[in-house]
Amino acid sequence: MDLWHIIILSILQGLTEFLPISSSAHLILPSQLLGWPDQGLAFDVAVHVGTLAAVVWYFRRDVARLSQAWLTDTYHRRVGEDSGLAWAVIAATIPAGLAGLLLDDMIEAHLRSGLVIAFSTIGFGLVLWWSDAVGRRERELPGLRLKDAVIIGLAQALALIPGTSRSGITMTAALFLGFSRDSAARFSFLISIPLIAAAGLLKVIELINLGEAADWQSIALGAGISFVSAVVCIHLFLKFLERLGLMPYVIYRMLLGVVLLVVLW
């Protein structure tokens, strides 16, 4: 891969993994518009590792606190506020994990087209706007119940449809449930950790089975750039979320979907 390909694709992955604008929609554009070659499985693994490291590092205090509370309270057979949130993260992960195991081959065969990505980018963007418009935004993370986590987890399973945006659909569900934008975003980031880790592990296993030669320089550069861009993305997104709302991302999704339709129709 050329250096500019590595830089641009790594930045795209770092930004779009966590913004509600669909990473699959963006990663299809360079190949469709510029004729870039496929980046390869090893590079996909690298940028997944970079984004996983970014979200774990950014929320390291939360991850450490929730993990310690979960271990302690589970041992003592009790549920506190932090261990309850940890159980909620687990509950929200299960639906998407099961859906991925059961439906990934079908989705790979039938839903990986550019037109599907274009329509889902627009459609789920409108649903995001609706949730932000009608959501009460009164609830915060300490009030999240197991039922809420399961609903958000079921919504997260829809992110298997290319163009949906995992962060976008989970925030949509949380907003419909009455959570504030900040709480919706933070829970979305927390539940991304086990899913990105699982997706990265599957890609590593696939890479080992294929026995592909690895360009370690490109892998290290891709992981580093995606890490930095993801950290910056998370920080700025949370900083300006309440001030800007979600409408800028909705408008962006509409424009992106139209561009994809014009290019691919």
Rank of each mutant, 00 (worst) to 15 (best):
F176M: 15
W216L: 03
S67W: 10
T121S: 00
T72R: 15
L154T: 10
A46F: 03
T51G: 06
S218V: 13
Q156R: 12
A86G: 06
S10T: 07
D148L: 09
K203W: 13
E242Q: 14
W4N: 08
S67L: 12
Q68D: 15
F237T: 02
S31N: 13
L177I: 07
L19M: 13
K147S: 14
P162V: 10
L19R: 08
G14T: 08
C233D: 02
L115S: 04
A86Q: 02
G245L: 02
Q39C: 08
H110L: 15
D38H: 14
S23I: 12
L210A: 13
T172L: 09
Q156I: 00
D82I: 03
S83L: 02
A86V: 05
K147R: 11
F176K: 04
L71H: 12
V134E: 14
L177V: 10
A46M: 06
I90L: 14
H26C: 10
A133G: 03
I225V: 14
V232A: 06
L34A: 13
R60H: 15
R243F: 04
V204E: 05
G178A: 06
L177Q: 09
V258E: 05
R65S: 10
W57Y: 15
S183A: 15
L236D: 04
R136T: 13
Q13A: 04
L111Y: 10
L255E: 02
L85W: 05
L34D: 13
L52V: 05
R139I: 05
A149R: 05
G135E: 09
N209I: 04
F227T: 01
L190K: 00
L9I: 11
L126S: 09
L27F: 14
S10N: 10
S120V: 13
D82C: 07
L15T: 09
L158C: 15
F43R: 12
A53Y: 10
G14D: 04
L246W: 07
R166G: 08
Q156D: 12
A223I: 05
S183C: 11
V89P: 01
G222M: 07
H235K: 14
I169Q: 01
L146W: 03
G40M: 08
A184G: 11
L52Y: 02
F124Q: 02
A198G: 10
G153V: 14
L221P: 13
S226Y: 06
A174I: 01
A149E: 03
F119E: 02
W216Y: 15
L33P: 08
R137A: 11
L98I: 10
R253D: 06
D73V: 10
T172I: 01
A99Y: 06
L66W: 10
A25S: 12
A214M: 15
E140R: 12
L126T: 11
W216D: 13
L201N: 12
L101N: 06
E206D: 14
M106D: 02
Y252F: 09
A54P: 04
V204D: 00
S165D: 04
I117W: 06
V116P: 04
L256N: 00
S131E: 06
L111D: 06
I161F: 06
L160H: 00
A155V: 01
P142A: 11
A109M: 10
S165L: 08
L175P: 01
R145G: 01
H110M: 11
T121H: 03
G163T: 03
I6Y: 02
F187Q: 06
R145N: 08
E242P: 03
F237A: 08
G222W: 00
S188V: 01
G40D: 07
V258K: 12
M106L: 12
Q156C: 02
T72E: 14
E138P: 02
